[in-house]
């Protein structure tokens, strides 16, 4: 780690005022400290958010919007009765990620802002446009088993590794942020960005903004949801491909479908046109393939990750089946429902 100045702001305003390009907020630290040890993150100062009041609440308002404070730990969020009752999808996705120990530390805000697991990004002795703009992207012709197949650019083909964010995308959550000029609400969809020609930027968050909460609108999907994660071992591994689905049903028809993919792009991947293919109809298995094809339209592999296209197609169909059948995937029993 490079030497840094450690600070514990007592109020949110103080945290925001103290924030610069060269400083970092410290949430659980499970990603930031990790990257600092690898000399990938080199903050001049750390603003430890952990003592701040008012960022640890989970509440539900009269409209049914669930609001989860940015400092709520992933473990607490997944275990919270309001989350379990109203958004079991979110709990499932969180529990499919990392480990009990990491989830005890990791925060909602930090999870949103965790960085890619691209091997090259982590290895300071290799080139990487995300880590050092302009040095190149060796992943394109290198080891890219875990890399993206959608929304890539010639500059970067990394994925966003979060499970939680995939569920948030399917839930159309809103990220509440605060900066020097006040509060902003950003749709999850717009929160993470594609690499384009600036792969060093993961999100649309301004350097001086802090995430304060995540809000999830009320949805009545009951048990018609799933978080299906496929990975290289049955636990403690990032997704090769994951699928989050909520399927609201009315009289046997799909009234609203949301599908988000993880492990395939620089952000959770959604395609409204694909979702529309099932809306207003019965959840006919025969159409699941079409939904998958639309979601994966334009997908391309880079060698090692070619398989993700086929795998994602199968996973989407299965996840839709699970949601339709109201048999959400358990993260404990590893048999796929």
């Amino acid at each position: 780690m490079r030497p840094f100045h450690y600070e514990r702001p007592r109020a949110l305003e103080e945290a925001i005022a103290g924030k610069t390009e060269a400083s970092r907020f410290l949430g659980g630290g499970t990603n930031l400290i990790d990257l600092m040890k690898y000399d990938v993150e080199r903050p001049a100062s750390l603003l430890d958010l952990n003592r701040l009041e008012g960022l640890r609440e989970v509440e539900r308002d009269r409209e049914g919007t669930l609001r989860i404070g940015a400092l709520v730990s992933n473990a607490d969020a997944a275990a919270h009765p309001l989350v379990r009752e109203h958004h079991p999808l979110l709990a499932d996705a969180i529990l499919a990620g990392a480990t009990p120990q990491l989830r005890n530390m990791a925060t909602m805000g930090g999870n949103l802002l965790q960085r890619t697991r691209c091997y090259y990004f982590y290895d300071r002795l290799t080139p990487c446009n995300k880590r050092e703009p302009g040095t190149g992207c060796p992943a394109k012709e290198g080891v890219n088993r875990i890399h993206a197949i959608l929304g890539t650019s010639e500059h970067c083909i990394a994925t966003h590794p979060s499970d939680m964010c995939v569920a948030l995308a399917a839930l159309e959550a809103v990220v509440v942020v605060r900066g020097p000029s006040g509060e902003r609400r950003i749709r999850t969809e717009d929160f993470h960005r594609l690499p384009g020609d600036a792969p060093e930027r993961d999100t649309t968050l301004d350097a001086r903004e802090v995430v304060t909460a995540i809000e999830i609108p009320a949805r009545l999907y009951g048990r018609h949801h799933t978080y299906l994660k496929l990975r290289d071992r049955l636990s403690y591994a990032f997704a090769l491909v994951s699928v989050a689905v909520t399927m609201e049903m009315q009289e046997g028809r799909v009234s609203r479908l949301r599908v988000a993919l993880g492990g395939v792009a620089h952000k959770p991947w959604r395609v409204p046109e694909a979702e529309a293919l099932l809306e207003g109809r019965g959840p006919e298995e025969a159409r699941f393939g079409a939904v998958a094809d639309r979601l994966l339209q334009g997908a391309r592999g880079y060698g090692h990750n070619d398989f993700k296209i086929g795998l994602a197609r199968l996973a989407i169909a299965r996840a839709l089946h699970q949601a339709a059948a109201a048999t959400p995937q358990s993260h404990v029993a590893k048999r796929i429902a």
Partner: peptide, 15 residues
């Protein structure tokens, strides 16, 4: 390239 034990997988308990 996967020179760590997050990306070099050995069996975990669940396996």
């Amino acid at each position: 390239m996967n020179h760590n034990i997050a990306e070099y997988h050995i069996p975990a308990h669940a396996d």
